[in-house]
């Protein structure tokens, strides 16, 4: 069995800062990490491999420094890593990204072993679209299983797979045939710590690095900015509300200064003054309780 896991190296968005005047991103010192959602995909793939045998290949499209993330994935125990890097990829939106990744997955299947399952994370924390997975599936005509909470059955001989999928209002138990693409839901497993031999192997591993051409992409106009139907026209900071909050304070005539009871009364007063119909609403709600 051969599983490909697509991961993305992303800036740790908790650390991103915005220039207060120019509204541009200040990148200095912002560390990069493996997209946290992708870790669940890696772990699920490794578990399947451990149980059923086979190989796990990690694939990323990104700048050369994305190699760090691939090496880290190898430390967890993945078998092979492919870095898709080329200046043609710069500025890709989801359509162009899924085109490049789909082509690379196909190539991986030809050069190495045929691919049975492709895993992606549910979404990235920078793009946050959850579209790349479905995009890859559609292009490769793979059965698409999104928001999967876990693989519940795999029959390699019969070429079928069963999963539980998060749906609106419940969980769908689905059965489909291989090959398929799975996007993994967060919180479904916990990424392992690789052993010392895994870590040493990862440190020494040769990362397979492909340009667009190497990956079998003939038409580079389908990549990057040129291959992206969406255009980002404007980036801006959210506008602040014009007036600040009206502050409620302890009434001057309160029995004692700093009296919290009086402050609470004043607050309730102010809330109902601000939004008179609330009083009736809340009374109704409270009664229902």
């Amino acid at each position: 069995m051969h599983i490909v896991v697509c991961i993305k190296q992303v800036p740790d968005s908790a650390q991103i800062r915005v220039h207060p005047v120019t509204n541009t991103i200040m990148r200095q010192g912002v560390p990069t990490i493996i997209n946290p959602y992708d870790l669940f995909a890696i772990e699920e793939a490794l578990r399947l491999r451990d149980k059923h045998g086979g190989l796990v290949t990690i694939l990323t499209m990104g700048p050369p420094m994305a190699e760090e993330s691939l090496r880290k994935a190898l430390t967890f125990g993945a078998d092979r890593a492919v870095l898709l890097t080329d200046r043609f990829f710069a500025g890709s939106d989801t359509l162009a990204t899924s085109f490049a990744l789909a082509t690379a997955v196909k190539k991986i299947g030809e050069v190495f072993e045929p691919v049975d399952i492709v895993f992606t994370g549910k979404q990235t924390i920078d793009g946050d679209t959850a579209q790349v997975g479905p995009g890859i599936a559609k292009r490769l005509r793979l059965e698409q299983l999104t928001y999967v909470a876990g693989v519940t059955g795999l029959d390699l001989a019969g070429r079928t797979i069963e999963v539980e999928r998060r749906a609106e209002g419940g969980v769908q138990a689905l059965k489909t045939s291989l090959p398929c693409l799975i996007t993994m839901l967060e919180g479904t497993n916990e990424i392992r710590r690789g052993s010392m031999p895994d870590a040493l192997r990862a440190a020494r591993a040769e990362i397979v690095t492909w340009s667009a051409k190497d990956a079998g992409i003939e038409d580079v106009t389908r990549c990057g900015l040129r291959g992206s139907p969406t255009v980002v026209k404007r980036v801006f900071a959210p506008t602040p509300r014009s007036e600040k909050a009206k502050f409620v304070e302890v009434p001057k005539d309160a029995a004692k200064p700093g009296d919290k009871g009086a402050l609470a009364e004043a607050l309730v007063e102010s809330i109902f003054a601000h939004h008179p119909s609330l009083e009736a609403d809340i009374t109704t709600l409270a009664r229902g309780y």
Partner: peptide, 23 residues
């Protein structure tokens, strides 16, 4: 942008090769 909507939108946009802006 529900689990259903996101699942469907991604596939439809790819099939039609058009742009999709999420969330």
């Amino acid at each position: 942008a529900t689990t259903l909507g996101r699942d469907l939108a991604g596939s439809v946009a790819t099939t039609l090769a058009t742009g999709l802006t999420a969330d």
